[in-house]
Write a protein that binds this DNA or RNA. Structure first.
Lengths: 188, 188
DNA sequence: CGGTTGGGCTAGCGTTGCTAACCATTAGCG
DNA sequence: CGCTAATGGTTAGCAACGCTAGCCCAACCG
C-alpha cells in the first residue's frame, strides 16, 4: 500500500499547492488575477492539472473559503478564551473585524465571491463552527431575546461593517467606535 | 436648435434604453448574463453603440446603481413619512429590506458588484441622499450616542442582513424578527 | 446639388474558463 | 526481465468575453 499511499500524498499536496497559491495570489492582486493560466504558471504545471482537482475556478475559491471558515472559528475561539469576563462578545467582535481586514481575499472568498457555500444543517461543519463560536459568546448575554436570532443580527452587523468599510462607504477612523456601539447596544 | 435637440433627445433615450435593458436583464438572469453581446442583441443594436455611451460594462452597472440609490432614497423618505410616530425607524428599516428583496439586481449593482461608486463629500449626491434619509430617521432617537455613527451601524446591520439572507445563510422565516430586534436594541 | 459630419456596422484582437486528444513514464504481472 | 495497463502530464483548441479599429451610408449644411 505504500505506493498508492505516496500517490495519494502527492496528489493531496498538489491540491494544497493549488489552493495556497490561489490564496496567496488573490491576497496579492485580488481574485480577478486568479485565472487558470496565471495559477498554472504559478504552480508550474499546465492548466488541465487544476481540473484534476477542481471542476471549476469557483471550486478553488470555495476551498479557500472553507479553510477560512476554519481559521475564523479558531480565531474567534481564541479571542473568547483570552477575553476578560464580561468583555467576551466585544473581544470576539473585534477579532472578527480583524480577521476580515487581515485576510481580505479569504474573507471575500467566504462571503462576497462564491455564495454557493451554504451552511446550516447538512453542510460541511466548518462554516457553522464559526457561527457556533459567535453564538457561544452571545448566548450567555442574550437575556430575554432569542439567542439564535441575536447571533444572526450581530453577525450581520459585523459583516455589514466589514463590507461597507472595505468599499470606502464608512467614515475612516471610527472602526472601534462602531463595533463597540453595535455590541454595546445589541447586548445590554 | 431643433435638429440638434432631437439628436440629443435620441441619444439620451438610447442611453436610457441601455441602462433599463441592462437592469431588466440583470433582474431576470443576474449580472453575469449582462454581456456586451447579449445587451447589444437585446437593444437591437451592435456592440460598439454601447461604448458610445459608456466606457465599460461596469459604467453601466454604476448607472443602474445610481438610479437605485435615488429610488432607495425616495422609498425610505416615503416610508418615514407614512410611518406612525415612534415607529419610523422600524418602518424605514423594513422598507430598506423590502427594496433589496424586490430589486436584488439593482441592490447588487449598488453594493456588491461595483465598489467604485463611493459616497461622502465630493461624490454624486444621490448615494448620500439615501444615507441621509436613514440618518434623518435615526437622529431624533440617537440619545447620547453619536447620530452619524449610529446610522452607520444601523445601515451596516441592514446591509448585512440583506446580504446574508440572500446567500441563504440565515434561517428563513425570521426576517421581521431580526430587523425588529436590530432596530429595537440599537435605538432604545 | 456637393462636402462634411456623425451614427452605425463588420471584423478582429487578446484573454478568459474549460476540454479533447495525445504522449510518456511508471506500476503491476507472467 | 518484458509486456500491458493505468496514471500524470502536456499541447492545442473551442466558444465566449470586453473592447477597438476602420469603414460605410445616410442625413445635415451651405
Amino acid at each position: 500500500m505504500t505506493i498508492q499511499d505516496r500517490r495519494n500524498r502527492d496528489r493531496l499536496s498538489q491540491r494544497q499547492l493549488i489552493t495556497s497559491t490561489a490564496r496567496a495570489l488573490a491576497g496579492r492582486e485580488g481574485w480577478d488575477a486568479v485565472t487558470t493560466r496565471r495559477l498554472a504558471a504559478e504552480i508550474e504545471y499546465s492548466q488541465p492539472v487544476i481540473y484534476k482537482h477542481f471542476s471549476s475556478l469557483d471550486d478553488i475559491a470555495d476551498a479557500v473559503a472553507l479553510d477560512g471558515f476554519g481559521e475564523l472559528a479558531a480565531a474567534l475561539a481564541e479571542a473568547r478564551r483570552a477575553a476578560a469576563p464580561g468583555d467576551d462578545v466585544r473581544a470576539v467582535a473585534h477579532r472578527y473585524a480583524a480577521f476580515a481586514s487581515d485576510a481580505p481575499a479569504v474573507y471575500d472568498a467566504m462571503f462576497s465571491r462564491s455564495t454557493r457555500l451554504r451552511f446550516g444543517p447538512g453542510s460541511p461543519t466548518t462554516p457553522s463552527a464559526a457561527f457556533a463560536e459567535l453564538r457561544a459568546a452571545v448566548a450567555p448575554h442574550a437575556g430575554e431575546a432569542d439567542a439564535e436570532t441575536l447571533t444572526e443580527v450581530l453577525w450581520a452587523g459585523l459583516h455589514g461593517l466589514v463590507v461597507l468599510l472595505r468599499s470606502g462607504r464608512l467614515r475612516p477612523g471610527h472602526d472601534t467606535a462602531r463595533i463597540d456601539l453595535l455590541v454595546g447596544r445589541l447586548l445590554p
